[in-house]
Nucleic acid binder design. Structure first.
Lengths: 104, 104
DNA sequence: CAACTGCATGACTATATAATCATGTAGTTG
DNA sequence: CAACTACATGATTATATAGTCATGCAGTTG
C-alpha cells in the first residue's frame, strides 16, 4: 500500500520532467486537446500521450472527451503555483552561480 | 547546455522521491549532520549521503563543515512551500478518490 | 602516528523511465 | 460501411535511478 509520502513523490515526479513541464506551461491558459498539445511542445504524439496519461494518473491533469478529441487540463491550480516557485528558485540559483563566476 | 526548463525539472526531481522527501521533512527545523539524518529517516548512511549530495548539486540543500561533521540545510525556504502545497493537493486527491469509493 | 569517526564514493544490481516505431481502437463522416 | 481522425498502447531500446556492500579519505583524538 502506498503511503502519503509516496503520493507526494508521485505528484512531484509528474512535474519533474522537461517534456511534462512544457505541457504544464502550455496548459496554463486552459484545456487543450492532444492534437494541439504535441505540436506545440514539439514532441511525438505517442510520447505526448504517455506523459499526459501519466499526469492524469497521478492527479495533476484532468481529462474531458468531446467527439474525437480529448481535452486535458490542469486539475489543481496549485500546480501552477509550484511551478512558479520553482522558477523563482532557479532564478536565484542562476544569479548566485553567476556571482561565483564573477568572483573568479 | 542546459535550458531553463531542465533546471526546473532538476529542482523538482530533487524533491520527487520518498527518501529525499523524508530528508526534507527532517530538515524543516534547521540544519542537521549526516549522522543525525540517516538514523532519523531509517536509511543506510551511504544511500543517505548520495541523496544529500544530489540535492546539494541541484541547489535544494546547502552544506556546512564543522570538524568531522557535515551539516546539511534547506537552502531555499520556498522548497518547504512547495512541499506544503503538494501535501494539500494530495489531501484533495485522496478525499476525492474517497468520494468515488462511496459512490459505488 | 595509530586508531577512530563521519562522510563520500566505486562497483554492482535491479528496476524505472523516456522515447520511438508500428499498430490498435473509439468515434466520426462521406 | 469504408475511409478517416484523434488518441492510446504494445514492443523495444537506451539511459537513469535507487539501493547495497565494501572501501576510501579527511579530519580528530589519544
Amino acid at each position: 500500500m502506498k503511503s502519503l509520502i509516496d503520493f507526494r513523490a508521485d505528484i512531484l515526479k509528474a512535474l519533474a520532467q522537461p517534456t511534462r513541464l512544457k505541457i504544464i506551461d502550455f496548459l496554463r491558459d486552459g484545456e487543450r486537446c492532444v492534437c494541439e498539445i504535441f505540436p506545440a511542445i514539439d514532441e511525438e504524439q505517442s510520447n505526448t500521450s504517455r506523459h499526459l496519461n501519466m499526469m492524469l494518473a497521478s492527479g495533476v491533469l484532468s481529462r474531458r472527451k468531446e467527439g474525437l478529441k480529448i481535452f486535458y487540463a490542469i486539475k489543481h491550480p496549485e500546480v501552477l503555483k509550484i511551478v512558479d516557485i520553482v522558477t523563482l528558485i532557479v532564478k536565484q540559483e542562476i544569479s548566485e552561480r553567476h556571482e561565483l563566476m564573477k568572483a573568479v
